[in-house]
Design a protein around this nucleic acid. Structure first.
Lengths: 203, 203
DNA sequence: TATAATCATGAGTGGCGACTCACTTTGTCA
DNA sequence: TGACAAAGTGAGTCGCCACTCATGATTATA
C-alpha cells in the first residue's frame, strides 16, 4: 500500500523509457481525461471514436497511445486505483482506525455511483495484466483498514477480507443501476456497516 | 373450446389470440430454453445465432417468434420473475415469517450466481415494457416479506423496502464477478442479514 | 388426399465499432 | 533555419451481429 508515490507525475506511464514529445504528452492526457468522462457517462461499451471526438483528436491518435481499447481502459483503471490507494493511505494513518474502513467504503461506493468505469472494469475479465498489481495494492490496503478496525473493536473478528471486498464490489455494482440517490446510498451502507460492527460498537 | 383458453401453457404469451401450430409451439419452448442456457453462461451479450444453434433451429425461426433480441430477453425475464414470484408466495404463507425474507434473498442471490441473465437484465434499461408488471409483483412480494419480518421482530423497523432491494440487486451483481464460491456467498449474506436484524434477534 | 394456410430456412443486408496505414504535420535539435 | 524523427490524421478494412425475405417444408382443414 501507500505505493511509495512515483514522484509528481500523473502520467501513469511507469518503468518505460524515452521522454515523449510535448504534444504527445498533452494529447495523451487529453485522451485519458476524455475517456474517463465518456466511459463514466456511457459505460465501457462507449466507442473509441467518441473518446477521440471528446478529446479533440483523430481516432488514430488514440490507438497510437493505447494500442487497444483494453489498454485504454486499463490505463484509466490504474489511475483510479492509484487515487483510491492514496485516499486509503491517508485513512490508514490519520483517522480514527475504527471508522476508517467505513469511510473508505462509503467513498468508493460514491465514486462508483458516478463513474460507470470502475464497475465496468471490475466486471471485465482482463484485469489480469498490469492492473493486477494495483488491485493487489488496493486489496492489501483494505486488509490493513479491516485489521485496524477489528483491533479497535469496531468490526467483528470473524469478518474476513473476502467478505468485505465482496460487499464492496456488490454495492458498487448496485449503486449504478437502480438510480440510487444519496439518501438511499447512505441508508444501504448503514445496514451493511451495522452488519460488520461488533455488538459493543452499536451506539 | 378455444376462447379464452391457452390451456395449461407455460408459454408466457399472455392476452394474445390465436392457437399456434404444434411445431411452432415446440420450437418456441426450445428457443426459450436454449436462450436461457446460453445467456446464463455467456451473459446477455451472447449472439442470437448461438441461441439458434443451441436450440437446433435456424436464426430466422428465433426472430419469427421473438421479433427482437430485447423481446427474447424480456420473455426469459418474465419467466424467471414468475418463478421467483411463486417461491415468494410460498415463503410468505408457509414458513417462519421472521426468516422468510432472508431465505428468499439467499435463494435469489444463489440463482443470480448461476444465471448471468438475471443480472444482465436488471442492468438493461428496457425493463419498462411488459416486464414492469412482473417487477412490481416481485417488489410487492418482497415488501410483504419485509413487513412480516419486522412484525415478527426479526428485522429492524427502520429498514425500508428500497434498501432491501438495493442490497439484493447489489449482492446479485457482485455474486457474478469475483468467482464467489458457496462459502463466500453464505458469509457475505450473513453480514448483510446481521445488519438487518434487530439487536434482540441476534442469537 | 388435396389445399391453403402457417412455419422454417439460411444466405444476405446494413450498420457499427475496433483497429490499420500511407501520408501529412509538427516538434526538436544541431 | 533546415532536416529528420516523432506524432497526428482519417478514410478504409475486417469481423461481428441484429435483423430480413424469397423460397421451400409442415401442419391443419375440407
Amino acid at each position: 500500500m501507500t505505493t511509495t508515490n512515483p514522484s509528481a507525475g500523473e502520467t501513469g506511464e511507469s518503468g518505460g523509457a524515452r521522454p515523449l514529445r510535448a504534444d504527445a504528452r498533452r494529447n495523451r492526457e487529453r485522451i485519458l481525461a476524455a475517456a474517463e468522462a465518456v466511459f463514466a457517462e456511457k459505460g465501457v461499451s462507449a466507442s473509441t471514436e467518441e473518446v477521440a471526438a471528446r478529446a479533440g483528436v483523430a481516432i488514430g491518435t488514440v490507438f497510437k497511445h493505447f494500442p487497444t481499447k483494453q489498454a485504454l481502459l486499463q490505463a484509466i483503471m490504474k489511475g483510479l486505483l492509484g487515487r483510491l490507494d492514496g485516499e486509503m493511505a491517508v485513512l490508514a494513518d490519520d483517522d480514527d482506525p475504527g471508522e476508517a474502513l467505513f469511510t473508505f467504503v462509503a467513498r468508493m461506493v460514491e465514486q462508483a455511483a458516478r463513474k460507470r468505469t470502475v464497475v465496468g472494469l471490475l466486471a471485465e475479465t482482463g484485469v489480469d495484466l498490469q492492473v493486477a498489481s494495483s488491485v493487489r495494492m488496493l486489496r492489501d490496503g483494505i486488509e490493513t483498514l479491516l485489521v485496524r478496525s477489528q483491533e479497535a473493536g469496531t468490526v467483528r473478528d470473524d469478518v474476513r477480507l473476502d467478505e468485505v471486498i465482496a460487499l464492496l464490489t456488490g454495492i458498487c455494482q448496485g449503486a449504478l443501476h437502480a438510480g440510487w440517490d444519496d439518501d438511499l446510498r447512505r441508508r444501504t451502507l448503514a445496514i451493511v456497516f451495522a452488519g460488520l460492527r461488533t455488538p459493543e460498537a452499536h451506539r
